[in-house]
Design a binder for these strands. Structure first.
Lengths: 332, 332
DNA sequence: TTGTAGGCGTTATCAC
DNA sequence: GTGATAACGCCTACAA
């Protein structure tokens, strides 16, 4: 593909009547260049519409201002929010973000990661799928986000999912519920498992009558079907979900079975997205501090760039937001 | 930042006992190299964990496999869907996607575009903000998506917004409504304006009693406030919105004013997102063919790469999906 | 079929 | 302070 060659620093050096070295120094704002020359160079660059070639600069410097972002599902609102934060932070500091969708099935995850490395990204934000085997380039910083995989020993930031599971159970227990289910996508996913374990731990400690965890699959449709099957016997008085997707599916399943919320079944969703507030009833949720997750992740990334990276695991607290979908009931 | 230098094609050439030229040819799969040598080279690369440096290759070839994507709001579900499609298509063809958030206010839009160009992206998908002045590099293909700006003469793909506005009005008119409002974010945005114009054209043609367009702002909150103010006088029997955001805000405004849907006011939303189906009542919508938008946009991009790019404007049809939020009423 | 060498646009290291 | 010049890692004529 022959494309018209763009104008280079050589051209503007010639135009300004200086050497390329000086032109480079001037453009980079290095202090070693006389004000008059600098002005000439900058002016020439402006006039000729010079666009620095950072590909060449990166090659020469062994360095780049691009970070990669591996997301399992780009249409998931939680990940979108996260991505927005991360992209915003990166842009503020002059970095670009190369976005990859790894799909939950992890197909091609490793290969796609390779393309990031081929492009010599400076670092990678990784939301690992359940099947990721940890393949990576140990020379390039990787920050694990949202899902912690302790075995890799990588710095990471995520919700304290166990605590969130505990908090979710307690919130419903405090409302008088004793028969509570949790609907998670898949226990293969680290955070779902943690949330489930926290939930069950709290249930055991508080001696709940009926507390169980259901694996409902990765889509709202699957969730509705799986959960729907379980609901035919003896439904609980409350359901807490393990994700936005599971929340959607749970609401559908309840509707399908003519169970009303919160009269028959209280629902405590996971992840606060705008429509939780618009649904009737509005949905109570376990909310993640997405903004802080992004901030801490970016901070870890910058630390890794500086070389002062320790495998630090940042755990953040969830917040329970009470709305209309959870109601207090009398003891049974 | 001194990072450990990675292993290059020279190393694997040495390891395989061939010249760099041969190594390059072998790795690139060019047919001019003897099977035996090729095997040696490939094996050496595998053994040494060779990661081709596409930065260097791109510099040498004046070429890259990266495209840019400029999105006004990364947390907008419609754009997320679009991005997912585009990223998926690009990945299938071996391209990476550099994602940029331009914000609706267009602040730094031009500057951010410059960074894409500095990174020598092969092409750019642009969802222009209202304030974009058309600055771009004419040597690098740009495909305008979702919002058409005819004055730039760029290839573009978007919904036929005028027709969608007409269809929305007609759908409600056919249900017997004669007093219909449309809530759009801002007429400064091309597609909102087009939808509004189509809506008004249909209203005029069908001689609706009360048909007006309200500009309600860029957030659900603003929408709820602005629309709320208008609702205090004499509410219409139906409202069609011009975006997912406006839909959210409209539902809130109606709830705030104790107006029920569809008993008091029918609501026809814009953009089909999963929760439209879960809300009670479920929300009828004007749905965009996002998948096809993505496909056509990528096709235009590939055509532009081939140099056979004409400023083609692809207009796609919306589909009205009837759910519970729109109901038939008798003539007044 | 294979090897050699020049150059892509930049930055960094030197002399001057 | 400024200007040659040598890399950076790769591709591709072109020569062998």
């Amino acid at each position: 593909v022959a494309r018209e060659r763009s104008i280079t620093i050589k051209h503007i050096a010639a135009e300004a009547g200086v050497s390329v070295g000086t032109a480079s120094n001037a453009l980079a704002g290095r202090p070693t260049v006389a004000p008059e020359l600098r002005a000439r160079v900058v002016e020439a660059a402006r006039r000729m519409n010079y666009r620095p070639n950072s590909v060449a600069a990166n090659l020469r410097r062994h360095n780049s201002r691009t970070v990669g972002l591996c997301i399992p599902a780009l249409n998931n609102p939680f990940f979108c929010d996260l991505m927005q934060r991360l992209v915003g932070l990166a842009e503020e500091d002059g970095y670009e973000v190369l976005v990859l969708e790894t799909r939950e099935d992890g197909r091609d995850e490793a290969k796609k990661l390779e393309t990031l490395y081929s492009n010599r990204v400076r670092g990678v934000f990784m939301v690992p799928t359940a099947v990721w085997k940890g393949e990576r380039d140990s020379n390039i910083p990787m920050i694990v986000v949202d899902r912690i995989r302790p075995e890799e020993g990588l710095p990471s930031v995520a919700l304290d999912n166990h605590a969130a599971g505990v908090a979710a159970f307690e919130a419903l227990y405090d409302l008088g519920h004793r028969s509570i289910w949790m609907a998670v996508n898949s226990r293969k996913i680290w955070n779902s498992r943690q949330r489930a374990e926290g939930f069950l731990a709290a249930a055991k400690r508080l001696r709940a009558k009926d507390a169980r965890v259901l694996e409902v699959g990765m889509t709202p449709q699957q969730t509705a079907i799986t959960l729907g099957g379980a609901l035919t016997t003896s439904p609980p008085t409350a359901i807490v979900t393990g994700s936005g997707i599971a929340t959607l599916g749970t609401l559908r399943a309840l509707q399908d079975h003519g169970l009303s919320t919160p009269a028959d079944v209280s629902v405590l969703g996971f992840d606060d997205v705008p429509w939780m507030d618009v649904l009737r009833p509005s949905i109570s949720v376990v909310a993640q501090p997405i903004e802080e997750i992004g901030r801490r992740a970016w901070k870890l990334m910058l630390a890794a760039f500086e070389g002062k990276s320790r495998p630090e695991h940042v755990l953040l607290e969830a917040k329970i937001i009470h709305r209309e979908s959870t109601r207090r009931i009398g003891d049974h």
